[in-house]
């Protein structure tokens, strides 16, 4: 149906997408998780309430979330260049992807951790647990299954955003769809790229659901 070159392009694009999404998900989790934890524990009635800190952090996270990705990508070009040495290509795309996903993941983490029963936290406090022990031994393990789902949602979001990264030469499936499918009127390439994206999203979500279910003992 297609000539072999399309398959090669598709394969490269898929790998680029996986690379961008994979790396930015990891960074978003590593950097967003502590923020999410802080958002929860400093909230009123939690283990380390601090109204000012919580309000300011919440505000910063909201600002981060309200900047449209396409704008963010352009706005931080200088930062990206400074950080990774270039503003074009898949590696460069990882920077805005990560930065856009950090506040998002912080919020979903916050939601997951908030679901942990207050009673369990109180029990740990009654047992003389330190704040750190409560975070590591209670909050995170109790919310683990829900956190996996949070990571899944973040990854799926990033798949969508990574397609936009194509606009600044980020590479990946989105780039392929825009350059060949849209600009060169190759409807077939457009179609196959979208199909691959759909399968990718479905796959990530299914795997995420499966792991989350396995981890849950509720």
């Amino acid at each position: 149906m297609f000539n072999p070159m399309i398959w090669t392009m598709l394969k490269t694009a898929l790998l680029e997408t996986l690379y961008m999404v994979g790396v930015s998900t990891v960074f978003a989790v590593v950097l967003g998780l502590p923020l999410g934890i802080l958002l929860v524990i400093t909230s009123e009635g939690h283990i380390k309430p601090n109204k000012w800190f919580n309000t300011i952090l919440g505000w910063i996270v909201n600002v981060g979330r309200s900047v449209p990705f396409i704008i963010l990508m352009v706005a931080i070009i200088n930062f990206t260049r400074w950080l990774v040495g270039t503003s074009i290509g898949t590696t460069a795309a990882i920077v805005p992807l990560t930065i856009s996903a950090i506040p998002f993941f912080a919020r979903v983490t916050e939601q997951s951790l908030r679901e942990v029963d207050k009673g369990i936290i109180e029990a740990a406090q009654a047992m003389g647990a330190t704040t750190m022990q409560i975070i590591i031994k209670v909050l995170l393990p109790e919310a683990f299954s829900s956190l996996v789902l949070a990571m899944t949602i973040t990854a799926v979001n990033l798949i969508g955003y990574s397609a936009m990264a194509g606009a600044i030469g980020g590479g990946g499936l989105g780039d392929l769809a825009i350059r060949y499918g849209y600009q060169r009127f190759r409807g077939d390439i457009m179609l196959i790229t979208v199909i691959v994206l759909v399968i990718l999203v479905q796959g990530v979500q299914t795997i995420g659901n499966f792991i989350a279910r396995r981890l849950s003992h509720k």
């Binding site: 369990i120 109180e122 009654a126 047992m127 003389g128 209670v138 109790e142 003992h217």
Partner: peptide, 17 residues
């Protein structure tokens, strides 16, 4: 001191994980 005082609850508050 809290470690010397045990506590049980109406809804048990066990760690589900």
């Amino acid at each position: 001191e809290r470690k010397k005082i045990g506590m049980i609850f109406q809804h048990f508050n066990l760690l589900s994980s």
